[in-house]
Design a protein around this nucleic acid. Sequence first.
DNA 1: TTCCCCTGTACGAATTCCGTAAGCCCTATT
DNA 2: AATAGGGCTTACGGAATTCGTACAGGGGAA
Lengths: 227, 227
Amino acid sequence: MTQILIVEDNADLAFGLSTSLEVEGYEVAVANDGPTGLTAARDRNPDVIILDLMLPGLDGYRVLRTLREEGREMPVLILTARGEEADKVLGFRLGADDYVTKPVGVLELLARVNALLRRARAPEKKETANEKFGSVEIIPSSRTVLRNGSQVALTPKEFDLLLALVRRRGAVASRFELLKEVWGHRTAVMTRTVDIHIRELRRKLEDNPAEPRHILTVWKAGYRLEA
Amino acid sequence: MTQILIVEDNADLAFGLSTSLEVEGYEVAVANDGPTGLTAARDRNPDVIILDLMLPGLDGYRVLRTLREEGREMPVLILTARGEEADKVLGFRLGADDYVTKPVGVLELLARVNALLRRARAPEKKETANEKFGSVEIIPSSRTVLRNGSQVALTPKEFDLLLALVRRRGAVASRFELLKEVWGHRTAVMTRTVDIHIRELRRKLEDNPAEPRHILTVWKAGYRLEA
DNA sequence: TTCCCCTGTACGAATTCCGTAAGCCCTATT
DNA sequence: AATAGGGCTTACGGAATTCGTACAGGGGAA
């Protein structure tokens, strides 16, 4: 979940902003003064900070400078009423990533936050990490699967299905969900397609396919992957 | 040397900007219309683009969109007289990193460009070092490939394709990604172009092209280079 | 010329379908 | 309450079809 921290002493503005951001699917925290904002930034390590400059206790410049001196590199968007060029230049020099002057439309602000997130997250590349269950290891980036260290040849559909199961871990995945996720939104034709591919996965990955210990059937519900 | 491309039809403004940027130690190129700007962006691969929206030939939105569709991810700062929120939102949605409304102070613009550069360069441009797999050695700086120590003649496209594969190492590269990275745009067209060039690479680099050991096919997914 | 990219064809892997067997759940009957 | 049977769900093995990739040759452009 992407976390955004708003450091802003105007409660109304902070509330409006946080609501808009939450609607967009972000998790938002609000701090009303400088010291609280600094602590929150340290504790929560948010993905973006929206920072007011005029704050009680500790002004925004100081908050920003302190964070950067501590080596925290999350994007910071300064949102303030001070529109002098000198202020902006100072803000950027202290390590801000964007500087917006009030008043500003919510849509523009959202767009700017998204732009910062896109840029900051690009290198990270939230690739699905390698997963393991039992003696099986899954490496999504190369689409390979190892069992007891040696490679197992899975067909594309088999691999995608396995991935879909793994992503759910212990939870039940219905045939319909799996169909939708692996085969794409095709009509709800009753087919045994999922079953068949499950069988193949068991055959290739289970020690005893007749008594699966990882890829389990949940009667009337679907399948479940158990570590 | 950090390269900045200015795409701006107002010659005076472009000149003033480029002078200021050069004083700051940047290498600046200027394009006066859309098509020229697009070509320059492709050829020079600048570190930042300052893009006007109202341009002769091809407007800034289109230039930006085309670049992003081609997979070019350099930061783009839109500099324009159009200050409507809808314009800004559109700009960001097309992949802009900043949006500045004329008139703007040179200092602010410099600060914003610097902020973009700082963020974009953080992951440190990994200059593709010499790479090896099997008995093949790749020297990107001279666009040369050696096999068992002797030079192999690759065509430009073949070399670019090989480079794209090498950059991913063990990970799967889809045909679409490769098309985007090596050929640029040309999306949506179902073609065997990638396949054909892969075949050439195998023919020239694999010991037994019929059973490739390095340039592997991943069914339904793409290709993968295995050391 | 060399290089690039398209079209057409063939091969083979992968997916899906079918019929049948086995398993589970519910319920009615003793 | 225990149990046996019916109905529905899932598993299996093989066969047919679909679909993706490899290969060959040729036209077009730089």
